[in-house]
């Protein structure tokens, strides 16, 4: 019997900037999964918790995109992974916790916990455009979609024109 590598089970929560864009998010995800593969770590689960309001502002960010990884690896890998996360410019915070000890990767039941959420696509990213602090403070003044705002402008113009006419009319009558 060959000496099977004994792994620990870890979970890592990564909080990234919401204004980084889908491209950067995908790159980070690929980087981490690639790193797992190279080190022989087993990726068990990936959850997308989505955008959440941070309990306190980090830098200038009020919201963060929460990502959750579960994997089997050894301690050295966690060191490398944390280094990658530390160096990434889009990561606000990360936390790795050991949740299981001395696991044989060959007998581990991967299916039981298997779940791989999809990362937000470009389109979805555009839909939920991250709000700046200012916009969330004053939701009424938030920029409207273009089509709508065009109509509004037209209406405003018309109304203004009518008002002008009316005013002129008033003056004419007076005079």
């Amino acid at each position: 019997m060959s000496a099977a590598r004994v792994f620990q089970k870890y979970e890592t929560v990564v909080v990234t900037r919401t204004d980084a864009g889908a491209e950067a998010q995908r790159k980070l995800y690929e980087k981490l999964t690639e790193q797992m593969e190279k080190a022989g770590a087993k990726h068990v689960r990936f959850e997308l918790w989505g955008k959440r309001r941070l309990a306190f502002p980090i830098g200038k960010s009020l919201k963060g995109l929460y990502l959750y990884y579960v994997y089997l690896a050894d301690g050295d890998f966690v060191k490398d992974l944390n280094r990658t996360l530390k160096l990434s410019t889009i990561v606000l915070r990360y936390l790795t916790v050991r949740i299981g000890e001395d696991i044989n990767p060959e007998t581990f039941d991967y299916e039981k916990e298997k779940q791989f959420d999809a990362l937000p696509t470009e389109a979805e990213e555009a839909e939920h455009r991250p709000m700046t602090g200012w916009e969330s403070e004053y939701p009424a003044t938030r920029a409207r979609p273009e089509a709508e705002s065009d109509e509004d402008e037209d209406e405003d113009d018309e109304r203004a024109a009518r008002r002008e006419q009316a005013e002129r009319g008033d003056k004419d009558e007076e005079g």
């Binding site: 929560v13 909080v15 959440r52 941070l54 309990a55 306190f56 980090i58 963060g64 929460y66 606000l92 915070r93 990360y94 936390l95 916790v97």
Partner: peptide, 13 residues
């Protein structure tokens, strides 16, 4: 303390 670190809970509010 863990929740605070990843900004799920406030350190102080």
């Amino acid at each position: 303390k863990r929740a605070r670190h990843i900004a799920l809970m406030p350190y102080a509010s």
